[in-house]
Write a protein that binds this DNA or RNA. Structure first.
Lengths: 116, 116
DNA sequence: ACTATAGATCGACGTCCATCGATCCACAAG
DNA sequence: CTTGTGGATCGATGGACGTCGATCTATAGT
């Protein structure tokens, strides 16, 4: 089985390339892009989802309902938001979709938050 | 003039002390605290406000209305959200309030976003 | 083909939030 | 004390979002 990816990219791939926000004023467009990714992170359920996936390296949607205490449509909604923000990617293997985090995305975020 | 601070702390001062979300699953409480700070950042106007303050080192509320294109009550609302999240602090000097960023807060945020 | 299960989509509901006009409070200069 | 200005608060409004039941699609096994 070829393990097809189900990742979706809603944000233009070349977004989030600007300087850290502590370096120079953000343009409205840059601020919109960054706010969209931060909004994907700014939810307790999605943060816990992300931390579970990261801690396990990989997690299946069906294994997230119980620890997060949310219904299946809600889990599907949150994985969708996170994947559209580029923070996680999913591989369908058989009936299951296995999610893992995108380290580069978090690194980009950390850079934009002003380090260095 | 003694330059009194107008900073407000809405989040308990010892919050955001947990491990990076890539290290271990977040507890619901930790996720709530982190989500609150991220929500403060997840707005285009507040991101631009923050970047302007950071770029200038210090900025007065009255100098933010024009570049941000928002009304005075809206600017006041956004500075309130950011200061309650601990991301900026304000000093009242005379009639004006001068805002500056809190580098430690951004550093904490970067740490929680998984980097080392 | 039939059945069972994982996940996505739809529709609705309730809540939260960004925004702004109007108003009130704080401070400083006459 | 009065006036003018910077900022905070209030109330209303419109839109965005989290949540879930119901339903639809996709895949696997029999």
């Amino acid at each position: 089985m070829p393990a097809r990816s189900v990742a979706k990219a809603a944000l233009s791939s070349d977004a989030l390339c600007c300087d850290p926000l502590t370096e120079a004023p953000l343009s409205p467009g840059e601020a919109d892009d960054l706010a969209q990714v931060l909004a994907a992170l700014a939810d307790p359920v999605r943060l816990r989802l992300l931390s579970i996936v990261a801690a396990q390296g990989e997690a299946c949607s069906c294994n997230l309902e119980v620890p997060l205490g949310k219904s299946q449509p809600t889990i599907s909604h949150h994985t969708r938001v996170l994947s559209e923000a580029g923070l996680i990617v999913g591989d369908r293997r058989g009936k299951w979709i296995w999610w893992r985090i995108v380290p580069d995305r978090l690194a980009t975020l950390r850079r934009l938050l002003g380090g260095r």
